[in-house]
Design a protein around this nucleic acid. Structure first.
Length: 820
DNA sequence: ACATACCGGGG
DNA sequence: GTGTACGGTATGT
């Protein structure tokens, strides 16, 4: 027997080789040796709540197409279910893959229909039950066995495993990026050549590999052809032997591309430490790529959901995130230029571009990894899973992990029918005070500190306390006829309170730590992970897929919340402030004729007054002071749109939320004008210039002088042409193009122009190439009224600029004649 | 009014 | 595996 202590990298249950699943744990020792521990002797369990004689269960056997499922042991225990004591049988199963199936069979029986915990993924239970953590030490006992096929230093037939605590490992990281040649504008991976791959490692490895030779590139290595490039990718992965492979959108783009090309050239994928290739697994953000023994991190899902609230940018591209987080931009090179350079055998600039992307990816990873790790530790799941999780997943994982401390049976996920039923049930959300469109000066934003968590804790909002005891003794819900008992404290408020208290404790410690130290960064990451999870409890209660879903609890939370925010609005008005906008837990207020310099003092004084009037646990924070705020109206409504505003902060940064200029199905012209107008209005303080700009652009457009390229609308063709039941403009354009002999393929990006003529938008849509070749004229009317106007109208409306000012003083009819 | 289809990230 | 993101918008029918 041997004992090996190593940092755990990843765990999974492998069913590829035989019907008996093998548990594989990968990691590395302190001195950097790679280890894999395997075992096929893992047992899983489920719970059955029953008063029936359990003898029948003890020797239960079930034939399945995946082998025999046998019950190996049954243990009776007293458990809690919704705060009530129940007798339950813990049923141990020989094969973890069959637990769910056994559960579904038992559920159909009369005696054993109340089945629990059969739907918790085995690995998740295993990690919780063995107290394991990503990149933390584990101690394994077992026998060394021959390493046949494994790319590790040691392979162990595992008997036992335990958490060995201690420091977490600093992983060896390899960041990568690919470039593809895509002259036919297919958006998706199929059929596109990979022309180069770049690498940057945490150990200083830096290289671009490509298959067209040129003079004088730095860190460039040339290979014979694309096949050799793909082979080189796997070879490099093996040579560097990273603990973490990181990309940006690599789940959806880089790795699927590599897999696709490897298949085409018959290159065997050897990525995992057991010689296996990439594996496509389901994650809550869509398909994800798993590698045995290496943690694959895709930065995109983590930034675009978990970190989104912390970023100013609304656009989650590598460039924008790098700019904000690292203060470093991508090399600018648009994809048409990439195609052009490659076609003309001049890939040098592409190489530099590619390497910069890998470098930014590595830097972003290094910056954000502590945060990912804190999330992973907090919910006790593998970082692979946590960094792709939705808020709901994080709460659910946290509850699954904390729940055993309460001896409660963990709830099941809803059935399909239940899910559909829940989804139909809507309820009133937070209170929204619609903004009056306009540009405001010196705005203050206050928000309740953890409004919903505070409400849940202080009103004991929990399924187990719902309508227990007498109404007079409980917390009555505003506008509703139900209540929550004050005691005993329910599982959800209890877990949440512990979480909030932990965060308070961390924040207290942080005060005495140097802001620039790495310890501070870690503590900040930890408190942030706790904050995100705490703030998501409410959403979780009302999320139809939740195990601990409770519509009454969710309703109660928003009901209390509306009560609180309305009181703040009233108080603000009484104190002589104008309330511009309020949403759920925040208010945007201002005072007419205020001066920026003195505004902060005024607001701070008022905030203090608010806080003095609030009960103990409720508190409002000063979220920010903005020099300017632009609120715009809904499309055709008088009241303003929700979450659509642009702010200019104290340092002159623009914060733009919810404007459409980011989308590719808008013409570059509309996007460009919208952004310019916003900048002029907010940053340059010149709405006159904005009007002038719009006027000029419209004039150009009407004279037919706008370059065609600026008018291209790009929409992806997602299906075969014959499968469309509704023929939208991109489909119609593609159909016409195909008849003319153009290459049309599902997956491609249809770039079209709306041309002059009669009929619907679809009838007037033609692909860009055809418009160019046949010298068709674009339709100024369409671009004026369907592209440019919608993008700026609401902004200028908010500033009380009348349409005529920029559209023209002439009538529409006159304009049409003008165009002719 | 309702249904359908697409956006995001990546080249 | 019981479910496969989601909220917003334009255009067709």
């Amino acid at each position: 027997m041997e004992r090996a202590v190593f940092y755990l990298n990843n765990i999974h249950l492998d069913t590829s080789e035989s019907k008996i699943p093998t548990l594989k744990l990968f990691g590395k020792t302190e001195d950097g040796k790679k280890v894999c521990a395997i075992t096929s002797k893992v047992k899983d369990y489920l719970w059955v709540v029953t008063n029936a004689n359990i003898k029948e269960l003890e020797n239960y056997e079930l034939e399945t197409h995946e082998g025999l499922c046998t019950v190996e042991k049954v243990v009776i225990k007293e458990k809690m279910l919704d705060g009530q004591k129940v007798m339950a049988a813990q049923v141990w199963v020989n094969n973890p893959k069959l637990t769910g199936y056994l559960g579904s069979v038992l559920r159909k029986t009369e005696k054993f229909s109340q089945v629990y915990e059969d739907d918790i993924p085995f690995i998740q239970k295993y990690i919780i039950d063995h107290d394991l953590k990503s990149f933390s030490k584990v101690a394994v006992t077992g026998n060394k066995i021959p390493r046949t096929g494994f790319k590790v230093d040691e392979l162990i037939q595992m008997r036992e495993i335990e958490n060995a605590n201690g420091e977490t490992a600093k992983p060896v990281v390899l960041a990568f990026d690919i470039e593809t040649y895509n002259p036919r504008k297919e958006v998706f991976v199929r059929g596109n050549e990979i022309i180069m791959i770049s690498f940057k490692s945490s150990k200083g490895f830096s290289k671009v590999i490509t298959w067209k030779k040129f003079e004088g590139g730095e860190n460039v290595e040339f290979v014979e052809d694309e096949k050799a490039l793909i082979q080189k990718f796997f070879k490099t992965l093996k040579e560097i032997g990273p603990d973490v492979l990181v990309g940006f959108n690599s789940d959806a783009f880089d790795i699927p591309s590599i897999m696709d090309r490897a298949k085409k050239f018959g290159v065997k994928q050897v990525a995992g430490l057991d010689g296996t290739g990439f594996k496509v697994v389901r994650s809550s953000s869509g398909p994800a790529i798993w590698i045995n023994g290496i943690t694959h991190i895709d930065l995109y899902p983590f930034f675009s959901r978990t970190m989104a609230d912390r970023l100013k940018t609304d656009i989650m591209s590598l460039n924008r995130i790098s700019k904000e987080v690292l203060n470093q931009s991508k090399k600018s090179l648009d994809y048409e230029k990439i195609n052009e350079l490659w076609a003309s055998d001049n890939p040098k600039d592409i190489c530099e571009y590619c390497l910069t992307d890998a470098e930014l990816t590595l830097k972003l990873f290094e910056k954000i990894f502590p945060v990912m790790m804190e999330f992973s530790k907090t919910v006790q799941q593998q970082v692979f899973k946590t960094c792709r999780a939705t808020y709901g997943n994080l709460v659910e994982d946290y509850l699954l992990k904390e729940n055993p401390n309460f001896n409660e049976l963990r709830k099941r996920k809803p059935s399909k029918e239940e899910f559909i039923k829940r989804r139909k049930t809507s309820f009133k959300g937070g209170y929204v005070h619609e903004p009056k469109p306009g540009l405001y000066q010196n705005l203050a934003v206050f928000d309740f500190k953890s409004l919903y968590p505070s409400i849940i804790i202080s009103h004991n909002i929990s399924p187990s306390s719902l309508m227990k005891g007498k109404k007079e003794d409980g917390h009555a819900v505003p506008e509703e006829d139900y209540w929550f008992a004050k005691k005993p404290v329910g599982m959800i408020p209890k877990i949440l309170e512990e979480l909030v208290n932990r965060r308070i404790g961390i924040k207290r410690i942080m005060k005495d730590v140097d802001v620039k130290s790495s310890q501070h960064a870690i503590l900040d990451a930890r408190q942030y992970s706790l904050k995100i999870i705490a703030n998501s409890f409410y959403g979780y209660l009302g999320f139809p897929k939740s195990r601990w879903y409770s519509i009454k609890c969710a309703k109660a939370v928003t009901s209390f919340g509306r009560d609180y925010i309305k009181k703040i609005i009233e108080q603000s008005k009484k104190a002589g402030f104008e309330v511009v906008y309020a949403d759920t837990d925040s208010v945007f207020i201002y005072k007419k004729k205020s001066v920026f310099r003195s505004a902060r003092k005024t607001y701070e004084k008022f905030l203090k007054q608010i806080n003095e009037s609030l009960h103990g646990f409720m508190k409002m924070d000063f979220e920010g002071l903005y020099k300017k705020g632009l609120f715009i109206s809904k499309k055709s409504d008088l009241v303003g749109a929700k979450k659509k505003y642009a702010l200019l902060d104290e340092h002159g940064n623009l914060v733009i939320k919810g404007f459409e200029y980011v989308r590719r199905d808008w013409s570059p012209l509309a996007k460009k004008i919208q952004l310019k107008v916003l900048k002029k209005v907010l940053a340059e303080n010149a709405s006159k210039n904005a009007v002038k700009l719009v006027k000029n652009e419209l004039k150009k457009l009407r004279l037919g002088k706008t370059p065609l390229k600026e008018l291209i609308i790009s929409v992806q063709l997602k299906k075969k042409l014959e499968n469309y039941s509704s023929i939208g403009p991109h489909v119609a354009a593609a159909m016409k193009a195909e008849k003319k002999g153009y290459f049309i393929n599902p997956g491609m990006l249809v770039q079209f122009i709306i041309i002059k003529g009669e009929g619907s938008v679809s009838e007037k849509a033609f692909i860009y190439e055809q418009v160019k070749k046949e010298d068709l004229k674009y339709d100024p009317e369409y671009y004026v009224y369907k592209q440019v106007l919608p993008s700026v109208k609401r902004i200028l409306d908010a500033l009380n600029v009348k349409e005529e000012k920029y559209l023209s003083s002439q009538s529409k009819e006159d304009l049409t004649s003008f165009i002719k």
